[in-house]
């Protein structure tokens, strides 16, 4: 049974300070010009208000855009490897949307299946997610069509829902969540009979996920991929803003003696992604890459990992420079005869 408490908005700054005093870095959405980005903050006053969705997702706390994998020193004919990257310091990510929190299940499925990715696991273990339910949504949101909701608790350690102007209902969902409460028990009060549902955004279900998953395996050769992606310019924006996109590149950098191996975000939208050294490319043109994006999320991952690789946050569509709207394209695929 989830432990329900309340916390005043005016207490959040105290909570932030207590968490920092406890040795945690606190990341929260901060407004920068037209964007809202997760950044380390030193108090609640820095947190952006009144946004539907952050520009980039919270995944960067777990999967940095550029992450050290190992260090090495090379001499004439010998190599020495140094200890892996320093242990990540504990992080609390505040203000994560429930859709983003759900995306952690996708990342877990990729990074922890078969081969345990310790770089990811360590970050994941030391990260606490304090999510905030969505009181509003926009035309790009479709979490409810992919199994989520504006008040979903999946993936969060604590979920806050604003139930009046100054009070959050706090659902304490995991041990990590309890640990946060235990740092500042006085800031939390026992919850009454408040229910969050009437405080959540109304996000209508827009397509039948089951029908989509049934349709895709037979749709590989369809003309729809070309039609839909004619305007796609092949940048990586959709992948990089996506909380559930996990593909990466590996790069070495060295000064000739000492060097590092990094992993960096990569995107199936890039032609280079699959290019063989010989010059042969299994996905030569953009329509094949667009197909891969949809197939991977809505067919391959459900089939192989039992998770849908999309949480309906709508970021890819909002950020796309050429208005590739994933919701619209999926609906078109579901409805096509």
């Amino acid at each position: 049974m989830t432990d329900k408490k309340t916390i005043k908005k005016s207490s959040l700054d105290d909570l932030f300070k207590k968490m920092m005093a406890d040795g945690k870095r606190v990341l929260a959405p901060v407004r920068k010009g037209e964007t809202v980005l997760f950044q380390e903050v030193d108090g609640y006053s820095a947190v952006a208000a009144d946004y539907v969705q952050t520009t980039l997702s919270a995944k960067e706390a777990l999967l940095p855009r550029c992450e050290e994998m190992m260090r090495f020193t090379t001499a004439q004919s010998t190599v020495s490897l140094e200890e892996g990257p320093a242990k990540p310091s504990p992080v609390v990510v505040f203000g994560v949307r429930p859709c983003d929190a759900r995306s952690i299940a996708v990342v877990n499925a990729v990074y922890l299946k078969d081969y345990n990715d310790a770089l990811y696991k360590e970050k994941s273990d030391s990260t606490t997610i304090i999510a905030v339910s969505c009181a509003k949504s926009d035309e790009y949101c479709f979490c409810t069509s992919v199994g989520g909701s504006p008040g979903s608790t999946e993936g969060s350690d604590i979920l806050l829902t604003l139930i009046d102007g100054d009070t959050y209902l706090a659902e304490i969902l995991t041990d990590k969540g309890k640990a946060v409460v235990s740092i500042a028990p006085a800031l939390f009060a026992a919850a009454g009979s408040e229910v969050k549902e009437k405080h959540l955004a109304d996000v209508p279900v827009q397509f039948d996920l089951g029908a989509l998953e049934k349709k895709l395996p037979g749709a590989f050769d369809g003309a729809v991929w070309i039609t839909q992606s004619l305007r796609c310019i092949g940048c990586g924006t959709c992948s990089y803003v996506c909380p559930a996109c996990t593909c990466f590149d590996i790069q070495d950098e060295t000064d000739g003696t000492r060097g590092m191996r990094f992993r960096c975000w990569d995107s199936c939208g890039f032609g280079q992604f699959t290019l063989h050294t010989s010059g042969h490319n299994p996905r030569e043109v953009q329509s094949q890459r667009w197909r891969q994006r949809i197939m991977h999320k809505f067919s391959y991952q459900p089939d192989q990992l039992q998770v849908v690789g999309c949480v309906g946050c709508g970021r890819c569509s909002r950020a796309c420079p050429v208005d590739m709207n994933i919701l619209q394209h999926i609906k078109d695929i579901v409805e096509a005869r």
Binding site: I233, C235, G236, S239, S267, P321
Partner: peptide, 24 residues
């Protein structure tokens, strides 16, 4: 420092048509 190397700047630019970009 905000750059995520998504290369949207390159992809959206009609003048960036190199078959193999310098970064590649």
């Amino acid at each position: 420092s905000k750059c995520i190397k998504c290369y949207a700047c390159r992809a959206s630019c009609p003048m960036c048509y190199c078959a193999r970009c310098t970064v590649e």
